[in-house]
């Protein structure tokens, strides 16, 4: 029994940290989906043909389902989801458009297309 108790104690101490990391990870997933949705929207500025437009709707829908899954997992993990911002692509429209503009110029590896550098634009 003793070795088992020795093993359990450190695991139980580490649990809150792991849970916190998981909550942060899930919140990041929601945010990444917002960025992806902004990027999908920006791609459509120059092409609104029926097939591409519908395809974008489906891509956007997939990101929303991803957000929904992340939120449900977060609730199951007991995370505080009040800081999660689903369906908020509007905050990333500016960097998404900058990236789309660069890509139109043929610059597919532009720095502005690195989503990890995108910052949320605050409402005035």
């Amino acid at each position: 029994m003793k070795p088992a108790i020795f093993l359990l104690v450190p695991i139980m101490c580490a649990l809150p940290v792991v849970a916190e990391e998981r909550c942060q990870y899930l919140e990041d997933q929601v945010d990444q989906a917002n960025k992806a949705m902004a990027s999908i929207f920006a791609d459509g500025i120059t092409d609104n043909s029926a097939p591409r437009e519908t395809n974008r709707q489906i891509k956007e829908l997939n990101q929303k389902i991803k957000q929904q899954t992340a939120i449900q997992l977060a609730i199951a993990e007991g995370c505080d989801t009040s800081s999660f911002l689903p369906n908020d692509m509007g905050s990333y429209i500016t960097p998404a458009l900058e990236c789309a503009t660069e890509q139109l110029k043929g610059n597919y590896k532009a720095a502005s297309c690195e989503m990890s550098n995108w910052t949320r634009s605050e409402e005035e």
Binding site: P51, E53, T54, L61, K64, P86
Partner: peptide, 27 residues
Amino acid sequence: CAQVCPKGLNPAKAIAKIKHMMVERVS
């Protein structure tokens, strides 16, 4: 559906939009 519509409508997009509404009302 969108390819054949004689009025140039896009039902597939409307269906995708309904799916959006379904997801949004759950989350």
